[in-house]
Write a protein that binds this DNA or RNA. Structure first.
Lengths: 234, 234
DNA sequence: CGACACCTTGATAGTGCTCAATCGGCGTGG
DNA sequence: CCACGCCGATTGAGCACTATCAAGGTGTCG
């Protein structure tokens, strides 16, 4: 689902576009969606967007910036479930349930399009093609969660980190946010650690290994991939 | 979603019942669903029900017996994603996609209700309330996958195993398949290992620990819980 | 009875964790 | 402009948890 940038005021380029449009087929008129939209909202970096268990009033779609979904264990450890890039929706499960079972936090400053939880579900479920498409998104998200279960259960630190980065990179490319083999990459080692179930120190060591073996390097918020082929094989 | 047993020939008691009925509210008439059903099918224990990536012709719902969803890593390791108990559907994502991104295997002998993939999706998506309910199931399954990601990323062997068992037990209780504090439990240590990302040997050790500390014990296909409270706290 | 699947136990090794110290970059405020 | 403080990255030493390898035990089924 490639997604070009546009102004957050221009509905067709942004809000739940990936649901409303499928390839060249228009499932719902832009003007209808536009009527549902509320003003955009901006969250500062590190700001929590949703708290787990909280009754949320709105569903968002990321217009610019990065965020992530996560859960906390009782002992205070954090597990990052997925990263949300421009075009991804935040809180889609709110279409089916009043409460979210995970938290969401802004990684960078994030601008989101806003849809009211009181209108959006009815709007979507009144349109079978839209409803099916929204459900397809959920099913795909589930399949990706299964992928991550596989990673966490079966792979070692090196593979987990490599696959996490590969996944993000391929999504960045789909969304045409790359410049050659360099990518914006706002994750710290702590984020990578919390996503892969490792320690920040150990992530640092593995990243060092990757740098010295000339696979990839991360510095100052940018990721450079030096050996694309090797990364794909992992 | 409690589910009593019935005869596999009696539609109202079985096929996608959990989707068609919600509490006391009937979303779809039993006779309509009955018309969709094909004859039941039985899979022997250890038989593969779906192969990952294969184009499936039918959607199932477990009538009796246990199964599990899993994926294989390239190095031959297996990751079990979830266990499927009576009442659970097999291959629900087929409502949204032609292919399944995981495999499914029978743990015990399994009897399933059968719905044609060529009719079921249209049937469901033509009925908004049904469609929404099916999507809700997907969203819940996703939330459970997120739970498992948390387990794998943040918890040690003891906690993972305890929580896996606790999860299964609570589902067995919902479905009234318990007898006091004893439960049918057909998983081998290998299954537990593949579900928790551990080694069978280590699972055996931890289970031994749990037995000697009088928490629970597993033997000959039955699980006995000796300290319910302690198990809940983990 | 033999074959097989599963469980148990022991010894050893390795992956990744913990604790701790240091360093560099960057923003803030004097 | 510089000092300070903070956050994140890096490095080292030692250890814990879990894996690996191996052998033996028990139960079940044909």
């Amino acid at each position: 689902m490639p997604l070009e940038s546009g102004s957050p005021g221009a509905c067709a380029d942004c809000p739940l576009r990936s649901i409303a449009f499928y390839g060249d087929e228009t499932i719902c008129h832009a003007s209808e969606l536009e009527a549902l939209r509320k003003p955009c909202r901006v969250f500062a970096a590190k700001r929590t967007i949703f708290h787990e268990g909280e009754a949320a009033k709105d569903v968002y779609q990321v217009y610019s910036g990065w965020a992530f979904r996560y859960k906390m264990a009782k002992d205070g450890r954090r597990q990052i479930l997925s990263f949300l890039l421009p075009g991804d929706s935040i809180g889609l499960p709110l279409l089916y349930s009043e409460r979210l079972r995970h938290s969401v936090k802004a990684l960078t400053e994030v601008t989101v399009c806003v849809f009211g939880r009181s209108e959006l579900p009815d709007f979507i479920h009144a349109r079978p093609a839209l409803a099916k498409r929204a459900a397809t998104f959920c099913a795909n998200a589930h399949a990706e969660a299964d992928e991550q279960i596989l990673d966490l259960g079966c792979r070692n630190a090196f593979e987990r980190i490599a696959r996490l980065i590969r996944g993000i990179v391929s999504r960045l490319r789909e969304r045409r946010q790359s410049e050659g083999d360099a990518y914006p990459f706002p994750l710290t080692q702590l984020h990578i650690a919390d996503a892969t179930g490792l320690t920040p120190v150990h992530v640092g060591r593995v990243l060092g290994e990757m740098r010295s073996s000339d696979l990839l390097s991360i510095s100052r918020g940018r990721l450079a991939i030096h050996n694309q082929d090797l990364l794909q094989q992992i």
